[in-house]
């Protein structure tokens, strides 16, 4: 028996909006730790890993570890039927072939339930090694989204370069080139407006911009984004969900030949 009650139901809605265009079908795993997902895009260039810890739920009952295969685009459609302040409860029976979504309005005057059929999905879990990154950049997530959107009008790739000067985002295309430099800035009124750069060594990596742009669909989940970079390794683009969990995107770099 699985029963998960999420008072801030909009979190689940935002998570699905963030991943539905990147991944088609995926298994949601439920265990004592929480509600999680790990999946790759169809080209195996990007990987998404998300977790909503059990503490994020008002009520969390998961009698045994369960993996539920779902089509994410359909799940996003179901979640779009919930109101912005609805409480969302997920329910599944042991050995059942469906997942029920229950939406309760905050004043309990409307209750809706949607049942989705589960799918069998072959998926391989990848082990993500612990890495000491050469550079870690924390910045406002809206600023990062804006930069990626602006650069995608010019080119198809993004070079992210961290030096003592700051973090530089560059692209190049038929019409020309663009460079945007953000410097460390901690003298802000609100901590979420800060840009913090921790650098062990300078690092430059190049990525396909359309993936990074797709990751920024997670912007509504967090005011800050963290980029972790090391030479010749996938970048990690992480949005922390308050004390409740995270969504991390890993993107394989473009490699010079």
């Amino acid at each position: 028996m699985l029963e998960l009650r999420l008072v801030q139901g909009s979190l689940l809605k935002k998570l699905l909006e963030a991943i539905k265009d990147l991944v088609t079908d995926a298994n949601f795993d439920c265990s004592a730790t929480g509600f999680s997902l790990q999946a790759m895009d169809s080209s195996h260039v990007a990987l998404v890993s998300l977790l909503l810890r059990s503490e994020a739920f008002e009520h969390y009952r998961c009698d045994r570890n369960i993996s539920m295969g779902l089509n994410l685009s359909n799940m996003a459609k179901v979640l779009r039927c919930s109101g912005p302040d609805d409480i969302i409860t997920l329910k599944a029976d042991d050995g059942g072939d469906s997942l029920t979504f229950m939406f309760e309005s905050p004043n309990q005057d409307k209750i809706a339930d949607f049942e989705m059929k589960l799918m069998d999905i072959d998926s391989e879990h990848l082990g993500i090694p612990d890495t000491e990154y050469q550079a870690i950049v924390r910045m406002p997530s809206a600023e990062f989204a804006r930069i990626c959107k602006d650069l995608s009008g010019i080119g198809d790739t993004i070079a992210i370069s961290v030096t003592k000067e700051g973090v530089k985002f560059s692209t190049r295309g038929d019409i020309g080139s663009a460079n945007i430099v953000c410097r460390q800035n901690t003298s802000v009124d609100k901590p979420e407006d800060a840009t913090i750069i921790e650098m062990e060594e300078p690092v430059t990596l190049t990525f396909a911009l359309r993936y990074i742009n797709s990751f920024t669909k997670a912007t509504p989940l967090s005011n800050q984004v963290t980029l972790s970079l090391s030479s010749d390794l996938p970048v990690v683009v992480e949005y922390k969900i308050a004390e409740m969990g995270y969504i991390r995107f890993y993107l394989a770099p473009k490699i010079d030949e």
Binding site: M40, S43, H44, V45, A46, L47, E124, H125, L126, G127, I128, P129, T157, T206, A208, L233, P234, Y250, L251, A252, P253, K254, I255, D256, E257
Partner: peptide
């Protein structure tokens, strides 16, 4: 030129 690497060449199956 540059080539797109795959995530599976960095992270291995559990």
């Amino acid at each position: 030129g540059s080539r797109q690497s795959r995530i599976t060449s960095f992270f291995t199956k559990k």
